[in-house]
Design a protein around this nucleic acid. Structure first.
Lengths: 329, 329
DNA sequence: TTGTAGGCGTTATCAG
DNA sequence: CTGATAACGCCTACAA
């Protein structure tokens, strides 16, 4: 089934079929009908390869996956799903590139004209994929900030803003314990960990709060929560493993919002999955995805010269895991 | 950068370049060198669209995603990653299709020659995508079993076998509580839930065990665990939310492998993420993925006429969450 | 062992 | 407003 068949059935030329589909030139109402009926009747779909060859547009966005996709999988899937949906809205498809392929993967999909643009997920501070991005044939959007972002397009959640909001929420305490990302995450060299921590510590210093930063190991969550609570901490800022932390807290008999204050960096779904819903800042993976694609399409459309970083603003939703201010200190 | 350029630099004809790359005809050592050097020098990559157009092969596998990709995300990511890796090993890429597109998505990617084959994830008992699969232009592999699988290619983990192994492991108890998939999952009409349950109940009946089937709601895991333990249950078979179940158990002061026996359907990573590692049957998402692609490539290669279902066998790994048999009953 | 040339299905330019 | 026709870059008979 080709556009030639459609043309024959409709009794028009092949190029007319093409123009009906693209809308790139005026068509009389009558022939448009003819063509559209033929298309319908034959259930015609244009051949992607041929179209890409002739138009120099693949209608494909490549997505470079994170290195360990199974950790933090729920957030990642939200990300990937939203990218795919946003791409489809603009009649594009999504091609997956594993992180295992590294730099070669990007070169391959860009060089072989397999995509029109690339989204690179989970960018590291020192990321080889960032270094070669400048000489790729296609616009590339980085989710996360590499150290050298000269001439790159980057987008990320505003972890600094999130840190400030969360610390401020607990600033009536003398001491705040941060249950932070564990070594497995830190050693991945994700620069948002540092951004979050620095902003948290600055805010704490400015507000006269003492911050205890406790990296939480994947295999010791419950143990560490207990230690921290035994040591007397009653103000918890959780950046990861929220479900396990909350259950560990409850296991000690203490109740968030009653016996202690707890805030978190967590999706709305996670924050509201407990008897006591948690005051939290969400990373908004879907917003980040949408904006990433929006900027990419702006670049493809030839508008938007703006290179550089963009932040998805942080916002805090108060729920019942924090007592009304004034009840402490 | 085209094969024409390579040909010019190498001083050979364009077709020779093509044949060097495909290996579809003998090439003298000398010209092969010439061509390979030129390819290297120009960092040439063949244009995917042109290749697809000429060869009628896109080198792309489409993957139709599940409806709610964020639930059970870790398993899904393992799945997707393994599919992508397996595809790359055969020089193919992976294209994502959202479940939201439904049947049209499959028609689109198949009809428009956007892929050579399709993998459909999380197939439902009554799945429209299964009904139209027979008239798609490309071979399609279903992960999971639809009710009508006449002429379809399906693959899935052997949930029945898994159920038998798990129940057998607790068969020295008079009563076993199954903390099963909750309504959110059951209503998705995934036929493995029924398969697992029926097999579990058959095995229990055969072994003289009484089975309490408790569907666990996402928002009530801890509560339900407590209820079940309060009611005296000391044999737990967990199919979902393992981490939360284990922590809830520990919260009651009871210890798996000491005060009660606990087995689970869970990945090895999940089963070993606790102080007391859990005796478990894994769904082996990566094995399922690999076999799905292997069969698909067999079909593409023109071999393998076998239509029908294939099961990835279940196996149980004993860890320390079950007391040595004989200590009860 | 290598070269020539036609065709794959679209897009888009040039005429009309 | 519509119709020919030349690319687009690669594959693969067919010749040599």
């Amino acid at each position: 089934m080709t556009s030639k068949d459609v043309a024959r059935v409709a009794g028009v030329s092949q190029s007319t079929v093409s123009y009906v589909m693209s809308g790139k030139r005026p068509i009389s109402e009558k022939t448009r009908r003819l063509v559209e009926d033929a298309i319908e009747q034959l259930t015609y779909l244009p051949n992607a390869g041929a179209r890409a060859l002739a138009s120099q547009r693949t209608q494909v966005i490549a997505v470079a996956m994170p290195f360990d996709p199974t950790s933090g999988a729920a957030g990642l899937m939200a990300f990937i799903e939203e990218i795919t949906l946003a791409a489809r809205r603009r009649d594009h498809d999504v091609l997956l590139v594993t992180a295992a392929e590294g730099v070669d993967g990007l070169r391959r999909v860009a060089g072989g004209a397999r995509c029109d643009a690339i989204v690179v997920m989970e960018v590291r501070t020192d990321d080889p994929r960032a270094r070669i991005a400048r000489d790729l044939r296609v616009p590339t959007m980085f989710v996360g900030f590499p150290a050298d972002r000269e001439g790159l397009h980057c987008i990320d959640f505003d972890f600094e803003g999130g840190a400030r909001l969360l610390v401020a929420e607990l600033a009536h305490h003398r001491r705040v314990t941060v249950l932070g990302w564990g070594p497995e995450v830190v050693e991945r060299d994700l620069n948002y960990v540092r951004r979050f921590r620095v902003a948290a510590e600055e805010t704490a210093a400015a507000r006269g709060v003492e911050l205890d930063w406790v990296p939480v190991g994947h295999d010791r969550v419950e143990e560490q929560v207990r230690e921290v609570l035994d040591a007397g901490s009653r103000a918890l800022l959780v950046t990861t493993h929220l479900a396990r932390v909350v259950h560990a807290v409850q296991g000690t008999g203490l109740r968030p919002g009653t016996d202690l204050d707890l805030v978190a960096l967590a999706t709305d779904a996670d924050a509201t999955a407990f008897p006591v819903p948690v005051t939290a800042v969400s990373q908004h993976p879907r917003d980040v995805s949408r904006q990433a694609l929006q900027r990419l399409f702006e670049l493809l459309d030839g508008g938007a010269r703006d290179t550089g970083v963009r932040l998805v603003p942080a916002s805090l939703v108060r729920r019942s895991s924090v007592r009304p201010t004034g009840s402490t200190r």
